[in-house]
Write a protein that binds this DNA or RNA. Structure first.
Lengths: 187, 187
DNA sequence: TCTGCTATATATCAAATTGATATATAATTT
DNA sequence: AAATTATATATCAATTTGATATATAGCAGA
C-alpha cells in the first residue's frame, strides 16, 4: 500500500478514538492546524486503503436521521504500523511563505505595498498566537486526564513561540522599512 | 497561461538578472531556502511557458565547452505582470512539521524516541540559524549597493527569528519531557 | 592516468497533493 | 419559509514533488 504521511495521521488519530472521515478532517483542522493539513481527497481514499489492508476496521452506524456514519477503528496491526513509523526519523520541515516571495521582490513594488504585506502577516500571526494561547489554557487543566494531552501541549507551545516571534519580527520589519524609505540620508 | 507561484518566482529573479534554469534553481535554494522551494519540474516547463507568452526572452549562448546555456531575460510585459502580482494579497503561510506529527502521537511511542525527534529538530534549526546569521553578515555591508539587498535582509531576519525561537522551544520541550517522564509524583 | 565525485545544465514523468466541487440531509438562524 | 451552517462522503482536474535520465567539464586522489 502507498506510504504517505496521511496514512499515519489517520492511524495516529484513530489510535486515540474511533472516528469518521469527517471527524478526522475536523481534528486535523483544529489540533494540527498550525503544522499540518489534510484534504478529503487524501482522507477518504486512505481510509479505504487502510481498511483493505486491515490496519483499521469499518463499522457503519445505521442512522435513521442523517447520513450513515462510517466509524473507523484501529487494529493491532495498525497500531504496530504506527509505532514503526514513529521510530523513523522525521523529514525536515517544509515552509511556504508566499508573502516573503512578494517581499523579497520589494524593490519592484512601492513602499505601501511592502508595508501592507508585512501588516497582513502580522495580523495572521496575532490570530494564531491567540488561538495557541487559548489551546494552552484549555489543555493545561486536563493534562492529568490523558497522556496524549501532554504531547498536544508541546506542539501548541511551538506554535505559540513561532507565531510570537513572527509578530515581533513584523514589528521590527515595519520599523526598518519605514526608516529605509522615509529617512533622509544624513551628512 | 497557468498562474502559479513558480511563474512569479521566475519573473522576480529575472527582474534582477538574466539567468538560466539552473541558475534559478541555485538562487531559490540559497536566497529562498528558508521559505520556498522550486523543482526542475516546475522551472523548465514554466520558462517555456513564459517565453511563449513573451514575458521573458531566450538567448542561447553558444558554448564550445559544455552544454549550451539558455539565458532568459525579462521583458517589459513580464515586469508589468510581476508588479500586478506583487500588488495582490499573499495567501497564508503553509507549514509541514513532520516531526510534530510524530511528537503529537508521542503517547504511542517511548520516551527516548520522543526526545530524539526533538533533538533532531533542534539540530536542524541550529544549522538554519547559523546560515541565517552568515547571510545577515554578508548582506549588511552591501546594503547600499542595491535596493534588492534590503528586502533579502528582511527575509533573512525572519528566518533567523523563527529558527532561534525553534531552538529555544526545543530546549524547553526537552526539559518538560524529562520532567514528565522521569519525575515522580509528589504527595 | 584513470576513477570517482562534484558541478553545470536541461529535461521528463510517475506518484502524490491540493483545492474545488458534487451530493445529501439535518439543524439552526433570520 | 428561506437561507445558512454543520454533518458526512466522495471525486477529480490541475498542480507539485521527488526522482531520474542525459550530457559534459573539472578536480582530487590513488
Amino acid at each position: 500500500m502507498k506510504d504517505n504521511n496521511a496514512k499515519y495521521v489517520l492511524l495516529g488519530l484513530l489510535s486515540h478514538n474511533p472516528m469518521t472521515g469527517y471527524d478526522i478532517k475536523k481534528s486535523v483542522a483544529t489540533r494540527m492546524s498550525y503544522f499540518w493539513d489534510l484534504s478529503y481527497g487524501q482522507i477518504y481514499p486512505t481510509l479505504k486503503d487502510l481498511e483493505k489492508n486491515k490496519l483499521i476496521t469499518k463499522k457503519v452506524e445505521q442512522n435513521e436521521k442523517g447520513q450513515n456514519r462510517k466509524v473507523y477503528t484501529i487494529t493491532d496491526a495498525g497500531t504496530k504500523e504506527l509505532q514503526e513509523w514513529l521510530a523513523k526519523p522525521a523529514r525536515k520541515e517544509v515552509h511556504k511563505y508566499e508573502f516573503l516571495l512578494k517581499l523579497i521582490f520589494g524593490d519592484q513594488a512601492d513602499f505601501e505595498l511592502n508595508l501592507k504585506h508585512i501588516e497582513e502577516f502580522k495580523a495572521r500571526n496575532q490570530r494564531i498566537l491567540q488561538t495557541m494561547k487559548l489551546f494552552e489554557e484549555n489543555v493545561k487543566p486536563i493534562l492529568n486526564q490523558s497522556e496524549a494531552h501532554f504531547y498536544v501541549l508541546l506542539t501548541v507551545l511551538l506554535g505559540k513561540s513561532i507565531s510570537k516571534a513572527s509578530v515581533e519580527w513584523a514589528e521590527d520589519a515595519l520599523k526598518l522599512l519605514r526608516e529605509h524609505s522615509g529617512g533622509e540620508v544624513k551628512t
